[in-house]
Design a protein around this nucleic acid. Structure first.
Lengths: 96, 96
DNA sequence: TATGACTTGTCAAATTTAGGACAATATAGG
DNA sequence: CCTATATTGTCCTAAATTTGACAAGTCATA
């Protein structure tokens, strides 16, 4: 489940058009279409706006959105999984 | 264990000076110092060079180096851990 | 075939950031 | 002290990335 897919689900389940949400985000429909298809990344502030417009849980959307960024960062690396595990351990260490 | 720390360990265990490695990487010592202290990120090609110069395992260095990038990406996000887990699941899915 | 919804491709502007140079400062050994 | 090593701080700019606008396309359906 990528961020864009989730947005599309929410949008369609609420009978909204890309054009309407695009207007709320002050971008054009092609751009919105690209965000839904994962061709472009949404900005953090757009995630916040979308959560609000779609009555969705912000933390949850942010988690998916951030995961997309991470995947984008490591996607071409053979060590991707291992690096993620390493990073996770470090993060957890810091949380204590 | 951050990338820079690991480099420093390797460098000192081999009795090398920052100045020497910096010259091999064609950067100045302040820059090298910053990389060791994690104030600057090394480039991928520098990681490769360092692995070679320090007779270290490249995959292992890349893993640590990539983990640093990931941490840098998520460090300010409350959802960091959860996003990492989500990303990890996605990556593993792709690997099948 | 006309319309509305969405997609695709390309371009340029704008912003960010990486990466490095350099000067000044600290620190430790001889 | 001197000297060599390493650190710190500031500035610069080349390059990469991001972001958005637009034109033109597809597709479904009335």
């Amino acid at each position: 489940m990528h961020f864009g897919e989730r947005i599309r689900e929410l949008r369609e389940s609420q009978g909204l058009l890309q054009r309407q949400l695009a207007a709320s985000l002050e971008i054009d429909t092609p751009m919105f279409s690209k965000i839904e298809r994962g061709e472009r990344k949404a900005k953090r502030e757009q995630v916040e706006l979308l959560a609000s417009l779609l009555h969705a849980n912000l933390s949850d959307l942010l988690r998916i959105w951030l995961a997309d960024q991470i995947i984008d960062l490591v996607k071409d690396e053979p060590q991707a999984s291992e690096a993620l595990k390493t990073a996770l351990k470090e993060i957890k260490k810091d949380e204590h």
